[in-house]
Every structure is written in structure tokens, then in C-alpha cells.
Design a protein around this nucleic acid. Structure first.
Lengths: 231, 231
DNA sequence: GTCTGCGATTGATGAACATCAATCGAGACG
DNA sequence: CGTCTCGATTGATGTTCATCAATCGCAGAC
């Protein structure tokens, strides 16, 4: 682990409040591993052996079924992932692969479960993390069920813009094919959705998106104050 | 509270393992309320004042956005619901209404949060509950993104049949319009989906569904051993 | 520079699904 | 016993989205 990274991991919401001593136990039982791009970290159905914490790089969580697959989440550093499978000790419901070269902290799942039982602060943080993740999924599911593709894209851009500082500019980080899969559509349709939004306050140039008329974009995308604005 | 109900609530996974004394605190701070059918219990965006435990009746959780709405979950007794909003103390992401006359135990949200902090067994149960709910939503979202309507219906029926004992019969409990909304389609399309499954090992008579050829139904619906079989 | 490979885009077509309208059928009620 | 109501069903039609095919544009290789 590089200097400065351990404190950064310790500052994660998940590990922040726990006892120093227990945190040391977690860290000393874990190990950092480097993975090349496009490598599968684990697959749907496998038994969860490690809690993963992405330190550096980008990881995609995706699900497959009957030959088709879809992106469920794009993980950026520094974040833990697949907490729910580790806590319940049940098979993964998603697969994971690196998109870029990545460094991942691997915390043995059994160790997580053991320390969680002994350190109430860690348990509370875990509980909170799971509750927030649950809420994210509620949002994603209603988004999928109630909105059509161009609206979903519009709302995602509005949300991203707020997260990136609110200057009316959004920098797309992932490939568009990935973004399409995350939004539950084909790359072709994403292109067309961008085209549609072009008539509703949006300008796009490659991976650089500019919101030229927020009011128009909001009228079209119908963001929900509860679902889309709050964290 | 009627005799026999309190022990039944105490047997819920959520409350089972906690200290007797703390459980008493929860119960004595809560109250049971009876609601008529079709009554809204709370609405999306409101601040969560109570953890709800459905004792008797049926409750629908649904989300709305831009005039449209969709069923997210049908709650049957005895189950707690909207745990995530209570734990995070953040606005509801779903609304709730009774479908039939219902009795609901209302546990003040602040009390839940306080006792959770003091009783590690309750916290662990909460964590587990949230993790399982998260996994349910992962399943629902991938189902929505990867399968088309008739497949979703087929898999739901296969799952229900297993839960109802596996005799090849499934009794539909909810109205079909509700089932349609839960599956993310219109009532008209649900009818047609049943029609399609009629050619793939299914027979339907009103609310009584019979699986006449499980192999055919599975071939068509492509259940995922991980996602659909495991709990 | 040119070639090459790959992702993004665009157009044409088809499938899945929603919508609109009409009808059917079963339970409620006079 | 009829009729009224409401959900379920069926058919006709339109919209949304996927698929297939071709082209564009850009970055890396040589």
C-alpha cells in the first residue's frame, strides 16, 4: 500500500468510526492486489470470499442472464463494493471486471463478518451503507419502470452535472456503450437519445456535454425532487 | 394487540435475537393501528416517522413519477417495511397504501434508531434485513433490464409456485392489474403474456394457474439458477 | 503519411410493448 | 332475476426501442 492510501481507506464512511484496533485487524488481514484491464474479478454465482475496496482504477459490476448482460454499476475509487453478498454470505448476484488497470484491497469476507460482530461502529456503518445502496436501487428500478430512455439520460446528466460541480458541463467518464448499458438501452439508442436532448437544452461534443438550457432539459426529463435531487 | 400476535412479532427475523428488555421498550413505545382499504399510509418524499410492521391485511408499496406510477412491492403479513428510510432518516422513496383492511404496528422511527444503537443483535438483524432487501432489488432490476415481459411473468410464476409448496399450482393473490404493475407492464400485456405462456406449459383459469409442463415453461422463461432459485 | 481497428453514429426495418376502444364475465345490489 | 359495475380480455393501431447494416471519425501501428 502506498503512503497516504491507508489513511484514505480509513476515512471511508464504512471504516471511519470503528475502533482503531479493529481497523488494524481488518487491514493486516487484507491484501492489496493489482489487476490488468478487462480482467474478471469474480462472477455471478460464486461464493463471496472477499470484500472489495477499489483503491485505484475503474471497475464494472454487471449481471448476465440467458446470454444477455447489463451494467449494474460503475465503481470509482475509493469505494467498497459487494458488501451485501459478504454480509449475507450468499452467492454474488453480479459479476465484476476491471475496466482500467486497478488496485483493489481484498478483505477476507469471514474477517469482515467477524469484526462486524465485535465492533458496533463498523456494524452501524455497514447498516447505513446497505440502506443507502438499497435506496440507490429503488431509484434505479423506478427510473427503469417509469421513464423512457431519453428521460433517463437527461436525468442522469442533470445528476452528474450537480456532482461534477454544477458548471453546466458534464464530462462523460465511461465509454458510451457502457453508459448505454447502465441506462438499460443499446448504444444506438443512446446516440439517438443524445440527439433528442439536443432539442431540449443540451449540446454534446464527444465526451463533453454542455447544458445550455437547464430549464428546457428539466421540462423534458421531469426530474423528481425526491428521487433525483437528494443524495 | 391480540393474544398470540405479540409473540408472532417477536419471532420476526428482525426482532428475534434482540434482548428481551429492549424488545419490550420497542413494543411499549409502539402502537397498533387499523386502517381501512385503499388508504394511503404515507407518501413519497415524506419524512419517515414510523417503522411499519404489517400484522394483518395487504399493503402496496408504489412509486410515482410524472403522473405515472408503478407497484414496487406487495407486503403481506407479518413483515416490516421501509426499514431503509427509517435507518437513514431520509425521505421515503415510495408511497404506501392498504389494499385490504389492515392492522399495522407503528414503531416510532427515532425509537428504532435509538434501540438499534444499543442492541447489537437488533442492529445485526437490521443489517441482514437490509442486505437481503438489497439483493431482492438487484434481482428485480436485472429482471427488468434483461428479460421481456412474458419471461418475467414465467419466472415469477415459477418462483411463486415454489413458495406455495410446489404442487404445480399457483394461486394469484393480487389483482392482475397489480401484478402487471409489479412486473412493469400494462394489464393488457399481462393478459397477452399469459396467452403466450399458454403455449409453454401453463394453464390459467381466473386466479388459478397450473403448470402443466414445467420443463417447457423453464425453457421459455430461462430462470437463472442463482437469481431465481436461491432465496 | 496511410492503414487499420474500434467505437460512435445514422438509416432502415422489425419486434416488443403501450394505448385506445370495445366486449366479456363475474360479483353486488336493487 | 335483471342490471350495474368493474376488472379482465381481445383486437386494432401507434410508439418506443432493438436489431441489422453501413458509414464516419479518430487513435494507434507501421
Amino acid at each position: 500500500m502506498r503512503p497516504g492510501e491507508k489513511p484514505e481507506i480509513a476515512r471511508l464512511p464504512l471504516f471511519r468510526e470503528m475502533q482503531e484496533e479493529q481497523r488494524e485487524r481488518i487491514f493486516s488481514g487484507s491484501f492489496l492486489q493489482v489487476f490488468p484491464p478487462q480482467l474478471t474479478l469474480f462472477e455471478l454465482g460464486q461464493h463471496p470470499d472477499f470484500l472489495h475496496v477499489l483503491i485505484d482504477g475503474v471497475v464494472e459490476l454487471y449481471a448476465t442472464s440467458a446470454g444477455r448482460d447489463t451494467t449494474m454499476r460503475i465503481v470509482e475509487p475509493v469505494t467498497s463494493f459487494i458488501l451485501a453478498a459478504v454480509v449475507t454470505d450468499m452467492p454474488y448476484l453480479m459479476s465484476a471486471r476491471t475496466l482500467t488497470s486497478s488496485r483493489v484491497l481484498l478483505v477476507p469476507a469471514a474477517l469482515v463478518r467477524e469484526v462486524v460482530k465485535q465492533d458496533c461502529a463498523l456494524m452501524q456503518a455497514t447498516m447505513r451503507e446497505l440502506a443507502l445502496a438499497y435506496r440507490d436501487l429503488v431509484r434505479a428500478l423506478t427510473d427503469m419502470k417509469l421513464r423512457q430512455s431519453a428521460e433517463r439520460l437527461g436525468n442522469l446528466l442533470l445528476t452528474q452535472e450537480r456532482r461534477q460541480g454544477g458548471g453546466g458541463k458534464v464530462q462523460l467518464r465511461a465509454e458510451k456503450r457502457l453508459l448505454a448499458s447502465l441506462l438499460g438501452m443499446t448504444p444506438e439508442n443512446l446516440s439517438r437519445a443524445f440527439g433528442v436532448l439536443g432539442g431540449h437544452g443540451l449540446e454534446i461534443d464527444g465526451a463533453q456535454v454542455t447544458i445550455t438550457d437547464r430549464a428546457a432539459l428539466e421540462t423534458f426529463s421531469r426530474p423528481d425532487p425526491v428521487r433525483d435531487d437528494a443524495g
